[in-house]
């Protein structure tokens, strides 16, 4: 069981304008674990991820208080913001295929990082597409537009892209919302494989998915942590909080 702290969040408060959506949450995410985050819509799950990789900076009305450290470094004082963001791979609920070819989608981050030897980029593109279980389907048409792929393929493309900068942390935000169950299971297998190399934060609307994959799970509700513990406890018959039991068993209201 992994135990070293990878991401430390202390008293994180986030407000959009005057409306606070994260009310001072504290948690540790451990190296090489799959950390599940469950909770109803509007709980602040996506906002939490955006605070970690600081894409929250792009919402001018957002104000953040508290600290987040990754590998002991405070993300808000990050010396190299771009390096921080490359440390973190992000997969959005609906696949965002950049208007580029399949190859260029995956080569995007390495190129931004300053890599330009074709052979190196080729190798990364192939490796990431293989890791995302997409290589065999697209290896003959790497030059066609990424947006021409099917929904499930596009989501695997965004996973390949998120892996292209060799992140230490992979955040998945409800990645299976728009894809079929078979593809979902394939990606879940991929994730089990990836956790050898990275920490995975799995935000999911399917509680069963967290149950299948996550080592520990956090139940976030209205910007507060209701319960955080080993998945066995959260999904077992006697979690500490009654609301956890109700939510996990679909009785929440």
């Amino acid at each position: 069981m992994p135990s070293e702290t990878h991401i430390e969040i202390r008293d994180l408060r986030l407000a959009y304008g005057t409306r606070e959506v994260l009310h001072g949450i504290s948690l540790d995410i451990r190296r090489n674990e799959i950390f599940g985050v469950i909770g109803p819509a509007q709980s602040g799950k996506t906002s939490l991820l955006r605070c970690i990789n600081r894409t929250i900076d792009f919402s001018p009305e957002a104000s953040v208080a508290g600290t987040i450290t990754v590998d002991g470094e405070d993300v808000r004082g990050a010396k190299d913001l771009y390096a921080l963001r490359r440390k973190i791979g992000m997969v959005a609920p609906l696949p965002v295929g950049l208007p580029l070819s399949i190859y260029d989608n995956v080569a995007f981050a390495p190129r931004c990082a300053g890599m330009n030897r074709k052979a190196d980029i080729d190798a990364i593109v192939e490796q990431c597409l293989r890791q995302a279980a997409l290589w065999d389907e697209v290896k003959d048409r790497l030059d066609s537009l990424g947006t021409k792929l099917s929904g499930g393929q596009q989501q695997r493309l965004t996973i390949a892209r998120a892996l292209s900068h060799q992140p230490e942390i992979l955040c998945l935000d409800e990645f299976s919302i728009a894809i079929d169950p078979v593809t979902t299971m394939r990606i879940e297998d991929v994730l089990k494989d990836l956790r050898k190399n990275m920490t995975i934060i799995l935000v999911t609307n399917l509680t069963q998915q967290a149950r299948r994959l996550a080592d520990r799970t956090m139940f976030l509700w209205n910007g507060e942590i209701i319960e955080l513990g080993p998945s066995d406890t959260i999904f077992g018959n006697s979690p500490r909080d009654r609301r956890t039991y109700e939510y996990v068993n679909g009785l929440f209201g």
Binding site: N53, T55, Y82, R85, M90, A92, V96, A109, C112, A162
Partner: peptide, 12 residues
């Protein structure tokens, strides 16, 4: 979403 995806990939 394009902007956010690009930024998340470490683009300046």
């Amino acid at each position: 979403s394009y902007r956010e995806a690009g930024i998340a990939l470490g683009a300046t």
